[in-house]
């Protein structure tokens, strides 16, 4: 992750750069203290990067995002990722015990960089159990780890909880690739629970309401009729994408304007990759 180090060093005055060199050489308790002190030594400002930096990162760890990274997070990720491979997971587990929220966020963002994914997978699962929204978001959003390493039930719990805590689903990598029948059933149940309680349905829920051989047509029809334009957009997009002519017929009959917008490409899902462009 030389690129991460270069981007970080570009922010630092000489004294902080000298400290960084020492920190990355340190071992044991001294390295752990450097991990804790990172915000005070290198600052919490956003890391500056260009599109080509993101391309370099992607070529090493596909899906790893520079978006939203701060200098202290970058340093903490480097402190873990530059350890010998066999030392990475034990260090992450040790630092996790007693981590404050920002440290935990940095550890979760570093997970895709670590060699032994199976050993650190429980940390991603713990982050997703958290009620600290930034920590949940760091694991669920713009992070390639869940798509690559989570089995189905863990994946579905993450998506459902993202709806509960109000984390945008389009920021989850692999959201469309990992659609599955069990998730369709869960989100439709959730929509029905919300309707029964007279409460709004989160618009993005409909993006998960289709899978191979699964199409809750009646529920999508109700979503399409929502007063919330954003929700109707999402139901329309799901109907348009469904592998069933009945869905497209329904969309064309009930909402020809949205059907036309989708055909013209002016209405489309937001893609996670859009954050690969700087300054989003």
């Amino acid at each position: 992750m030389q690129v991460l180090r270069e981007l970080l060093e570009a922010h630092l005055a000489d004294s902080a750069r000298a400290w960084l060199v020492e920190a990355l050489r340190a071992e044991g308790p001294e390295r752990e203290r450097a991990f804790a002190l990172a915000p005070r030594r290198v600052g919490t400002q956003a890391l500056a990067w260009r599109a080509e930096d993101q391309l370099r990162v992607d070529s090493i760890v596909p899906g790893l995002r520079l978006y939203g990274l701060s200098c202290d997070q970058a340093l903490r990720m480097l402190l873990l990722a530059t350890l010998p491979e066999e030392a990475q997971a034990p260090a992450a587990l040790r630092l996790w015990a007693g981590a404050e929220n920002e440290e935990a966020v940095a550890i979760v963002r570093a997970l895709p960089l670590l060699a032994d994914a199976a050993a650190v997978e429980p940390l991603a699962r713990q982050a997703l159990r958290s009620n600290v929204v930034p920590l949940f978001a760091a694991a669920a959003q713009h992070n390639p780890f869940p798509e690559r390493h989570f089995e189905g039930a863990a994946w579905n719990q993450m998506v459902l909880k993202a709806l509960f805590v109000g984390c945008e689903l389009w920021r989850i990598q692999g959201l469309d690739r990992r659609r599955n029948a069990a998730l369709v059933a869960m989100v439709v149940d959730y929509a029905q629970e919300r309707w029964a309680a007279g409460r709004a349905v989160p618009a993005e829920l409909w993006r998960c309401a289709l899978a191979q051989g699964e199409l809750p047509l009646a529920a999508l029809e109700r979503g399409l009729a929502s007063d919330d334009a954003h929700e109707a957009d999402h139901a329309a997009l799901a109907l348009a994408e469904a592998d069933d002519p009945a869905a497209q017929d329904l969309l064309a009959a009930r909402d020809p304007a949205r059907a036309a917008a989708i055909a013209a490409g002016t209405l489309a899902w937001r893609q996670e990759e859009e954050v690969c462009r700087p300054c989003v």
């Binding site: 919490t44 400002q45 956003a46 939203g68 701060s70 997070q73 920002e102 966020v105 929204v133 930034p134 978001a137 760091a138 959003q141 713009h142 805590v165 109000g166 984390c167 945008e168 920021r171």
Partner: peptide, 9 residues
């Protein structure tokens, strides 16, 4: 700046 991460979430 980190609080801007993931915008409104």
């Amino acid at each position: 700046q980190r609080r801007l991460f993931a915008g409104s979430t």
